[in-house]
Amino acid sequence: MSIFVDENTKVIVQGLTGGQGRFHGVRNRDYGTKVVGGVSPNKAGTDFEGIPVFASVAHAVAETGATASFVVVPPAGAVGAILEAAEAGIEFIVCITEGIPAHDEAKCFNILKKNFPNARLLGPNCPGIISPGKCNIGITSGDIALAGGPVGIVSRSGTLTYQALHELSQQGVGQTTCVGIGGDPVPGTNFIDCLEAFEADPETKAVMMIGEIGGSEEERAAEYIKAKMTKPVVSYVAGVTAPPGRKMGHAGAIISGSQGTAQAKMEALEAAGVSVALNPTEAGEKMVAIVRNL
């Protein structure tokens, strides 16, 4: 099994006719994802490489029965696109857009929470989600993932997600689902959401969690793992040597005062019984060892 998406998930692409939307939308379709439509008000009624384009998400949903959306629109319009998807009844929204103002994200999150409690937002500023062999929504390269499980991956960083997939796939260890929750300060889906889903998924036998400096999501995840998780977790946290007060590439990757250090996160995870690695390679090795002993 997989979490959040599977081989039957019908996806529309908001921003399909833009440069990124064209590239990734077609790539996701070619991977085998059921990409059933795109949304672009100016190009409604046409199609792009066989994918029909609709004027609105509501129209696309009515015509295709889509339940998921891939939002690839620029920062100024991204929140509007996310809310349009939620209003049209989309239940799983993946937004890869980088550079959305934090206040827009905070408002968006709270509107979704209040008015659309059944809608899940993944991202923004994330690589998306891939369930190898079944569904790929986002920008992850499908050929570095390996189908069949038993590992679930959740990560705040895109390239470290790829690195993790690569480390495992090279050793013949597959993945059930790999979720990039993104590097912004207000992620729609957090570590705990993913850990809960992996814990409930019978095919996932172990979880790799990749964190980074900033915020306290890793510490909260550690509490959850300690209290609820029965499956082994391997973790790596990036940014041990990051200076305080600087945004390290991601808007959310910042040590504020004494808050959000990698050290504190690693200590919290270790105290929760998580196997904490010092670098991505070691994380891969630890996970391979766990899987071999399952």
Binding site: S157, G158, I213, Y236, T241, A242, H250, A253, N279
Partner: peptide, 20 residues
Amino acid sequence: ANGAGLAMSTLDVVNQVGGS
């Protein structure tokens, strides 16, 4: 490096092997 996470991780690994 490419990607914020990998770039951060690269600093960490350089530090781990005794450099800066």
